[in-house]
Amino acid sequence: MPPTAGSRHPPSTRVLRSTLATMALLGVVLVPDTLVAVAPGSVSGHVTIKRGRRDKKDRSNVLILVRGVPDSRPEPLAEPTVVDQTDKTFNPRLTVVPVGSTVDFPNNDRVFHNVFSVSRPATFDLGLYKSGTSKSVTFEQPGVVDVYCNIHPEMAAKVVVVDTEHYVVTGPDGAFTLDGIPPGTYTLVAWQAHGERYEGWVEVGAGKTTTLDIELREERWPHDRHTRKDGTPYGRYK
């Protein structure tokens, strides 16, 4: 079992990617034999996001995942998922894929882009490529990958690579449902790009739905400044 315990952790100062990496290493979990072939349960609930003193209306893009489910070996996505580049913006800005999946980064602007990442789970530099062309990356390691353009500092996206099939990304209403989870007690993680993360125990009963409401606090002033691929600042105002 992961060494973490307790129903609610204080917001971690460690970035999630290291947690996920740890998760990957400790992913093999021993589970009593008697649980095999028992009807799975599910977890559902709502996420609310506080921004300052106010509730944020848009509760989308929160990643909910259940950690520690035995034999959770997610299949890579059959088709590559797409992170589009239009109007010098990555769209979507958050993409979650299972380990081994491929993401396409097509350039639909009529200017050159140079997509790169120096994040640990995936370090890559796709080089300059022009309108109408696309380059891909296959993500083999779980974790959070910050994706930038080496030319346009305002372009930023995140690709989260997960090594479980038990995940879901919230929509604007913040609702989530995770089905097909074998009964047991696991860690549920709610993660957002900018702000604190939720991590707590969840008990899943056979054929039952556990409900869980999560409140997250979004960082008011996201610190998102990054350097170019070679570690130098972007330089003059662009």
Binding site: S119, R120, A122, T123, Q141, T227, D230, G231, T232
Partner: peptide
């Protein structure tokens, strides 16, 4: 994984020490 980390670290390090010029 360590190799990955090392590559990334190296890249960052190159960027920081002592100066990176262009």
């Amino acid at each position: 994984s360590l190799e990955h980390q090392q590559r990334a670290s190296q890249q960052r390090l190159d960027g920081m020490l002592p100066l990176t010029g262009r």
